[in-house]
Simulated scan of single mutants.
Amino acid sequence: MKHSLSQPPRIDAGLFFLRLTGCLLLLHVHGLPKVFHFSEELTRIEDPFGLGAYLSLLAAIVAEVVCPLFILLGVFTRLACLPIIGVLLVAMLFVHPGWSIAEGQFGWLLLIIFTTLALTGPGRWRVFGGVAEVERGAG
């Protein structure tokens, strides 16, 4: 069997689909509501480490809005997954420790998606240098 450094196009399509759907779900359900309803969110945000509502909300917005935009573009994907993974772990382990798997399934699934992307990277279908391209070589 011949070993090749390039992966089949279906792998790149799968990674792109994972990036697209995971980021759109995170943005729609968690990120954009925090931006559009900032003042209201300040009264509801959990603050498990005593940083204050403002800093906790800003951290959540970075993880749930800024980082998904980088991941959608395939730019700094592995690095951009780390704040998302951190916020999800804090939510699941510190803010909602009593949730059953069923109650926290959305958070756990997002954690699976973004941990997978942190391990694999974006694949070859990504934006680089402001121009959409299918990069040749390793993803």
Rank of each mutant, 00 (worst) to 15 (best):
V131W: 14
C23F: 03
L117M: 04
P48F: 10
H28E: 02
F36S: 12
L26Y: 10
L69V: 10
A138T: 11
V87P: 00
A63P: 03
V90M: 15
V134F: 03
S4V: 08
T43F: 06
A59T: 11
G86L: 07
A59C: 09
H30W: 14
A118K: 00
C67D: 02
G52M: 13
V134D: 00
E135N: 00
I113W: 07
I11E: 02
A59I: 08
V127G: 00
I45Q: 07
F16K: 00
L5M: 15
S100P: 02
C23M: 04
I45W: 10
G31D: 09
H3Q: 12
L93E: 14
L89R: 09
F76E: 12
S56W: 08
I112F: 13
G86H: 01
L110C: 07
A132Y: 08
L111C: 11
A53S: 15
G137D: 02
L57K: 03
E103I: 05
F94M: 13
P83I: 04
V29Q: 07
L27N: 02
G74S: 07
A63H: 02
F128T: 02
L72R: 00
F16G: 01
V65I: 03
G86N: 07
R10T: 12
I113H: 06
S39G: 14
P48E: 08
A118V: 00
L89S: 13
